[in-house]
């Protein structure tokens, strides 16, 4: 069914883009067919990941940033992820509401998506949705993660610049920040900086980052903002711009592209392998046979796993 949309998509019809994203969300062969078809057009957009704790103001920042970028570029895309309820499978996708300035502008395409059990802080298909927006001609794309701890850092894999959003209360003690967060940020935002200790927090953060060895020669920047009021947004745009030129000077853009594509192939292949593995009748049979032995202590889980994998290759050779 995607064919009916392709031509309209390439001629800039937002409804076609939206419908194609739904097909991608549903996955399966149809979804991959869309991704195949758009791939030649993917790769033009500058991708910005936005991560940080819940309530730090990620959506409000994207709201102001996307409006700011829109003054210079034709199209901005936003993929905003909210958590799926583990109980009902439903979700309240609340990011859009906080993008009140952006949503009146047809040049800003906001797509909300539920995490649907993905552990990465991104939805299983957030990167793919960004691809659709990329091929649709977005110049800048924001990927917003849900703030869920360590695993969200995978956001970095498919973006050019990673913004980490913090608030002064997030633990007045900078030292207590998760080290993972400190390592992935290209730009650190101290949002709600007009609160008590906002300045001191930003200073502490700066001095702490100075102690670290800059990764690949980039020393992360710290920008205080008051997103709801638009405070610090020009400075933030400037900081992102500086990181972008840094990447451009050092071949970082190409390097990121290579990494992202490698990662994507690996991830997709792993997924497929997993599907293949668990859908294989031989594996099911072997597991049925092995499991009682693990239960009664005759075999360790490791032994069983080795034999399970072996069953696949033996079967192959035999077949």
């Amino acid at each position: 069914m995607h064919e009916q949309y392709m031509e309209r998509f390439f001629s800039g019809d937002p409804l076609a883009a939206s419908r194609l994203m739904s097909i991608v969300e549903r996955g399966a062969e149809e979804g991959e067919a869309v991704l195949d078809a758009i791939f030649p057009k993917v790769g033009r957009a500058y991708r910005i990941g936005v991560t940080g704790l819940t309530g730090a103001g990620k959506s409000s920042l994207i709201n102001k940033l996307s409006c700011s970028y829109r003054r210079e570029v034709e199209r901005v895309g936003v993929v905003a992820v909210d958590p799926t309820s583990p109980f009902s499978g439903g979700a309240l996708l609340g990011d859009r509401i906080r993008m009140s300035d952006a949503r009146g502008d047809a040049g800003i395409f906001i797509r909300s998506v539920a995490s649907r059990g993905s552990e990465t802080g991104l939805s299983a298909c957030a990167n793919e949705l960004a691809d659709v927006l990329d091929a649709f001609g977005s110049d800048v794309i924001f990927l917003e993660t849900i703030g869920v701890g360590q695993l969200e850092y995978k956001v970095r894999f498919s973006v050019h610049t990673t913004l980490v959003v913090l608030v002064p209360e997030a633990g007045d003690d900078i030292q207590s920040l998760k080290s993972g967060l400190m390592e992935i940020g290209d730009v650190f935002i101290v949002n709600k900086a007009d609160r008590a200790h906002g300045d001191r927090y930003a200073d502490d953060l700066r001095s702490m980052l100075e102690l670290r060895r800059p990764a690949q020669g980039w020393r992360p920047l710290v920008v205080p903002t008051v997103a709801v009021k638009g405070g610090g947004i020009p400075e933030l745009v400037d900081a992102i711009g500086r990181h972008k030129s840094f990447l451009e000077r050092n071949g970082g853009i190409e390097q990121k592209r290579i990494e992202a594509l490698r990662n994507r192939i690996a991830m997709v292949a792993e997924e497929k392998l997993k599907d293949l593995f668990w859908n294989d009748r031989r594996i099911a049979q072997a597991l049925d046979a092995l499991f009682p032995e693990v239960l009664n202590g005759a075999k360790s889980p490791y032994q069983a796993a080795r034999e399970l994998v072996a069953a696949l290759s033996i079967g192959k050779q035999g077949g």
Partner: peptide, 9 residues
């Protein structure tokens, strides 16, 4: 949401 739908307000 509790009925399993994805809701945008």
């Amino acid at each position: 949401r509790d009925a399993g739908m994805e809701v945008i307000y």
